[in-house]
Nucleic acid binder design. Structure first.
Lengths: 140, 140
DNA sequence: CTGTATCCACTGCGATACTG
DNA sequence: CAGTATCGCAGTGGATACAG
């Protein structure tokens, strides 16, 4: 017998179960953890900014160079949201000209476990998805 | 000495390293795995539709009931993209009226590992983020 | 250097109506 | 039941100019 391995259900059933419970209560989209995920890291830039800060603290323009195609407006806005959520810490150094440093908080660091898993998944699946698409697009 | 545990770097550094390598090459947003993630599951409905299919195959209107606030238009569109990417399989039964069944492919099932991690992360972090926000909003 | 303000374009998405 | 077609809006984000 292999009791332990048999006891833990596969991931898709775990998630299904989590949401089956929610289904019983009356529906409220505002307390759905998945929509929460999307609100937090589902936008165009948040993940990339977090990754830009993964290795070490960086200054505003340094992040901007790491993500060349982000506008100052969006970088600023994304950083403020991350700061507000407590994922990123901001320090101003009153030099001249002023320099501002952003770094991950402890909480911010914890995103990287699930984030890394997700990035690995796309990398693993990239080819399979590509061929699936090609097949879908070329068939009647 | 504890060679094995010392050898595996924390997640945020793993990701940082993955992207540091990319930085050396000339920048091309179209081959970035993070933007790939966002394109695939970063939209408003994809994750929710996948979860709706996690436990077992479902028919169109059944999914619609699971996600009450999705429009038929978006459900249809989301399902087609998932089918095109090979994550979801579609079967038509020529009954009258016609019934169509959607189910996860093998590839589709593999999303749930990283997806579950991500959902767990928000659930774990939800309170911490809430208090961080409250503090940010009430301070000068 | 580190932002903010203003304006504008695009598009994702919802509402509604219609079809096999 | 399982969609598609058309329309319209609102929010997201880019460009530019300005400011501390």
């Amino acid at each position: 017998m292999e009791p332990v391995e048999a006891a833990v259900p596969p991931y898709h059933l775990q998630l299904a179960r989590m949401f089956a419970e929610r289904q019983t209560a009356e529906f409220d989209a505002t307390v759905c953890p998945v929509r929460d995920v999307l609100d937090r890291v589902g936008d165009k830039w948040t993940m990339l900014v977090l990754i830009a800060l993964a290795e070490r603290p960086r200054r505003f323009s340094e992040i901007n160079r790491t993500i060349p195609d982000i506008s100052k407006r969006m970088l600023s806005q994304t950083l403020r949201t991350l700061e507000r959520d407590g994922l990123v810490l901001r320090s101003v150094f009153p030099t001249n000209p002023p320099s501002v440093e952003y770094r991950l908080s402890e909480l911010g660091r914890t995103v990287f476990e699930p984030l890394t898993m997700l990035v690995r998944w796309v990398e693993r699946s990239h080819d399979a998805i590509g061929t699936a698409r090609k097949q879908y697009d070329t068939s009647p």
